[in-house]
């Protein structure tokens, strides 16, 4: 009975989010039908939301355990920078472009997996709070990236590498297909497996989870490794989309990812939230920023509105919680 109730509760919030998304979408379409509701704009929105979406899913999984990852974008970019070095070397050695790209992707994801494991080690095994660990690793990752790139952007990929971030497959932007795959896999993993259940439990109460026989350290380590892999995937998309890698690419995504997760109903203290909620949160942010952009609203004003919406949603949630009690 309890679970049924909470299920309805969760879905109610999800429905509210979908309604907000649809309302915004329809509003933007009415306000500028000739520009917003075009296949061109929809596809550019899909391109733009993919990289933030993948990062936001990584962030939400971390937030579900009660943590946070401030090193998100810097992990992506350090991995992408090292992957770029490998691809540059292989290109200048005249290797097969497809092999080069494959090697590059494997290196990027492997490096970001290791970076995730470094975060995981300090958080799970040393026991330092995630915000402190990732404050430190963020600085370290940024510094290593700066040392390699000397502050500029690295490029020099095989031309085929462009497809990952800019290509269209069966009429759908390729990065969006990657994003959809990430959504499906992570939803199954988090919401349909025992491991996923233990992620929620850790967010609810670490001590109780540990006493119930779950190896919380291992689960936490896994969470940060998965977040690392997602950073790597986002790093591949970003490197391909900008056809270069640089330490500060995507640094605004860290806070946007938190915003999307929280908008999507993830409790910042952990234990509550869904992947699909975050996905809708990302979509809402994208509709707002693309829509307002098309309407000619200043880019900086969009930030003000997003901040205001974040406060408004949490305020509404606060008052609706009071009413329920």
């Amino acid at each position: 009975m309890e679970t049924l109730k909470s299920n309805i509760q969760n879905n109610k919030q999800l429905y509210m989010l979908v309604i907000i998304f649809l309302a915004l979408f329809i509003l933007m379409s009415i306000l500028s039908p000739s520009k917003f509701l075009t296949s061109n704009n929809i596809s550019s929105m899909m391109f733009q939301m993919s990289e933030l979406g993948v990062l936001a899913i990584g962030m939400s999984i971390v937030i579900l355990t009660g943590g946070i990852n401030l090193a998100l974008s810097h992990s992506s970019m350090l991995a992408a920078i090292i992957g770029t070095l490998v691809m540059q070397a292989m290109v200048s050695a005249g290797m097969n472009p497809l092999l080069t790209i494959l090697a590059g992707i494997i290196v990027i994801i492997a490096v970001s997996l290791i970076l995730g494991a470094i975060n995981g080690f300090f958080i799970a095994y040393v026991g330092v709070l995630p915000i402190l660990v990732t404050l430190g690793t963020r600085s370290v990752f940024e510094g290593i990236g700066l040392n390699i790139t000397k502050g500029s952007a690295l490029s020099g990929y095989p031309p085929e590498f462009n497809f990952i971030g800019n290509g269209v497959f069966l009429g759908i932007p390729f990065p969006f297909l990657i994003y959809v795959a990430v959504i499906i896999v992570s939803t199954l993993l988090i919401q349909r497996t025992a491991w996923g259940m233990s992620v929620y439990m850790i967010g609810g109460n670490v001590k109780a989870t540990e006493l119930s026989g779950i190896n919380t350290k291992k689960v936490l380590m896994g969470v940060y490794i998965i977040c690392g892999i997602l950073c790597g995937i986002a790093g591949v998309i970003m490197a391909s989309r900008y056809s270069s890698a640089r330490t500060d690419y995507g640094s605004s995504y860290v806070m946007q990812a938190v915003t999307a997760a929280v908008l999507g109903g993830t409790d910042i203290n952990g234990g509550e939230g869904t992947i699909i909620g975050t996905v809708i949160g990302v979509a809402i942010l994208q509709v707002i920023s693309s829509g307002l952009n098309i309407l000619g609203v200043n880019r900086n004003f969009v930030d003000i509105i997003i901040g205001a919406i974040l406060i408004a949603v949490l305020t509404i949630r606060f008052f609706s919680n009071i009413n329920e009690r």
Binding site: I68, M255, V258, T259, V262, I268, N300, F301, V302, D303, I304, I306, G307, A308, L310, I311, L314
Partner: peptide
């Protein structure tokens, strides 16, 4: 963390 994130975004924007 969320409240100050939001106000920071608003102020900077």
């Amino acid at each position: 963390i969320i409240a100050t994130l939001a106000t920071n975004t608003i102020i900077n924007g």
